[in-house]
């Protein structure tokens, strides 16, 4: 059955975890997101790239229910996000380096609290498991307010893995990490996606990271997806050697004709 399922999955493509259709959001005169549609399949790592102000964070926040789209629809696991918010959010998680955590609490207490907020059956065991996975065991008794930015990012990531999410949304997941820690986190995330079939949707300004991690990349510019594909196909389409040059072309010259 499993083999048959895998063969079928190869033929029809990965099962869609997230489907966003024609998302639009205006903030006053600014068209922050303008008709964005994207699909993320099971086990797929999707990157959302674009210059500052392109609409990446607004898109992510719409997918998380933090911002209501003016038009368009979001379905996750076949459920409409607006109508099934609790079910959907219990299967999704989010990490962003710019978010804070209660500074007076110890890391263990923060994670224990979030484990409960996700309705986990055995919060303490899950916290111990995730701490081992993300290698933050020595930090558990430290106050979150005393952590370095790199340690804070790892704790945020641990928080995001607590509910064993089927879709992990990451805004700049390795932004504050040194190259070694960043590499280990990337390896962890790719391993998690490949081994468990989790879907990842990430934004990053680290083009090497995106090249190495993502199966599919969407370039956003002025609220629109202007190019999509694998890193290699995008470079070929734009007639450049790598994703960094694609980024520079999109940022400086806009969409190719």
């Amino acid at each position: 059955m499993r083999c048959g399922g895998m063969v079928l999955q190869r033929i029809v493509g990965p099962v869609a975890i997230l489907e966003a259709q024609s998302l639009t959001k205006r903030f006053g005169p600014v068209h922050a997101v303008n008709g964005v549609s994207l699909t993320v399949g099971q086990g797929e790592i999707t990157g959302l790239l674009g210059p500052n102000g392109a609409g990446k964070s607004t898109t992510l926040h719409m997918l998380l229910g933090l911002v209501t789209p003016d038009s368009g629809g979001i379905t996750m696991f076949g459920l409409d996000l607006q109508r099934h918010r609790t079910e959907v959010l219990s299967r999704v998680n989010f990490s962003a380096s710019y978010l804070g955590l209660p500074g007076v609490l110890h890391v263990r207490e923060v994670l224990n609290s979030f484990a409960r907020l996700y309705g986990l059956r055995d919060p303490r065991k899950r916290v111990a498991d995730v701490a081992e996975l993300v290698e933050i065991g020595p930090l558990l008794k430290r106050r979150t307010g005393d952590l370095s930015s790199g340690q804070h990012t790892r704790v945020q990531l641990a928080k995001a893995l607590l509910n064993d999410p089927e879709l992990l949304i990451l805004d700049e997941p390795t932004a504050a990490l040194d190259p070694d820690a960043g590499e280990r986190i990337r390896a962890l995330l790719v391993g998690v996606a490949r081994e468990t079939g989790k879907a990842l949707l990430i934004t990053s300004h680290n083009m090497r990271e995106v090249e190495r991690m993502c199966d599919t990349i969407h370039f956003l510019s002025a609220g629109r997806i202007v190019a999509s594909g694998s890193a290699a196909s995008l470079a070929a389409d734009f007639g450049v050697v790598d994703l960094e040059e694609v980024f520079l072309k999109v940022a400086r010259e806009g969409v190719p004709a």
């Binding site: 079910e87 209660p102 609290s113 484990a115 409960r116 907020l117 309705g119 986990l120 059956r121 055995d122």
Partner: peptide, 24 residues
């Protein structure tokens, strides 16, 4: 739903989430 969590609309899950706020 993953096996590690209560069904999101169950009473157990609701109380666990409320307890999360109080615990914090």
């Amino acid at each position: 739903m993953t096996a590690i969590a209560f069904e999101p609309h169950s009473v157990n899950a609701r109380w666990r989430r409320i307890a999360g706020v109080v615990y914090r």
